[in-house]
Amino acid sequence: MTDAGTGLPSGLTMAWSRPVGWILDHLVYRTTVTGRTNVPTGGPVIFAGNHISFLDGPVMFGAAPRPMHILVKQEMFKGLLGRVLTASGQLPVDRRGDRAALQRCKDVLDAGRCVGILPEGTRGSGAASDINGGVAWLALNSGAPVVPVAILGTRQGDEHLDFVPRPGRRFHVSFGAALTLARRAGETGRASMDRAAQDIRAALAGHVQDTIQLSGQPLPSAGDQDLTAVAGDAGR
């Protein structure tokens, strides 16, 4: 479902999907949400979350104080699940690198909406020790602030990357202080991208560690990596 004339996901997609996200967070699971006041109340926002489970995107979606369109690997857009993702306004991305998906995200941000991305690209420990360049490209080219999002509890200990938590598990989602990035005079595009990516990585990693200390909820062990890259190095 798209808005006529823009090609962007229809705003109507949020009318049903946001309540479903809230139900997932607060009725199926027990999610504590902190830092909502750190999210700008208007204008475009990039939500950048750490990645430990396939539930991270839906949990972040349900916890956020504003609706967002999340980048989801294109392989998920098949069958019934694909129809649900499309109907809820999510955005497909080729995990091998996808400039078109990033441009569509920029169009969404230019329209004053919010985009969600899991910039680590692969499910792992969630410590944000490395991120891909897509989120830096979006931040620099849209001017949208980046809000780091710590997501804890969706996977614990040595649980498999595909593990589905039983209903009632406690999750913790925390929204950190917004970070605004811009190109500097005399700085090359390559240098701007590298600096922005490092600043975002440091902000996300630091916020994850702060949230662990405040919540007492640890990250899981890294486990095997699942190739779910979000936008790869597209746009570099």
Rank of each mutant, 00 (worst) to 15 (best):
N141W: 00
A191C: 08
R166Q: 12
G157N: 08
R36E: 08
A128L: 00
A234M: 03
C105F: 03
A136Q: 12
P19D: 11
S10D: 13
L55E: 06
F171W: 13
Q90K: 11
G134L: 09
A197E: 09
V230M: 13
R201D: 01
R18M: 15
D224E: 01
A15C: 09
V230F: 02
L204A: 05
D94E: 08
M1I: 04
P165G: 03
A182C: 04
H172I: 07
T228L: 13
S174M: 04
L152Y: 11
F163P: 02
G7Q: 15
R96D: 10
T188A: 08
A64W: 14
D233H: 13
V135R: 01
P9W: 10
D25M: 07
I131H: 00
A197P: 01
P218V: 15
A63V: 02
R96A: 09
H207C: 14
G143I: 10
G186L: 03
G206K: 08
Q74W: 13
G49Y: 13
P167M: 03
H26C: 07
K78N: 05
L161N: 01
D25R: 12
A177R: 10
G189Y: 05
S215P: 01
A101G: 04
T180S: 12
G206R: 07
L214G: 08
M1P: 10
R166K: 08
P67K: 12
R155K: 09
I46L: 15
G62Q: 07
D110W: 03
D194V: 07
A63I: 00
Q156L: 12
P58D: 06
G143F: 15
L214W: 07
L102V: 12
D94K: 14
D94C: 09
D98Y: 04
L85A: 05
P220W: 06
R195G: 00
E120V: 07
P92S: 12
S142L: 06
G42E: 15
V28E: 00
S221Q: 14
V45I: 13
R113E: 05
T154C: 12
I23P: 01
D199F: 05
W22L: 11
Q198W: 01
V173K: 05
A111V: 03
T122Q: 03
D98C: 07
G112K: 00
D158S: 14
L204F: 04
N132W: 06
G116T: 14
A231N: 09
H26A: 03
N141G: 11
G43M: 14
A136M: 07
R113Q: 15
R155G: 05
G97W: 10
D226M: 04
Q90S: 13
D110H: 06
M68H: 06
L109G: 06
L71Q: 13
I131E: 00
E187L: 02
H172Y: 15
G43C: 09
P218Q: 14
F163Q: 01
A87P: 11
A178C: 01
P19E: 05
G42N: 09
A64P: 04
N38I: 11
I212W: 00
T2Q: 04
D130T: 12
S129Y: 01
A64G: 07
L204G: 02
H160M: 06
H69R: 15
A182H: 15
L12H: 08
T86P: 00
V93R: 04
I23N: 05
S221P: 06
M76L: 15
S10P: 09
V28K: 09
V45Y: 02
A231G: 10
L140N: 01
A63D: 02
A4G: 00
R169G: 03
G11I: 02
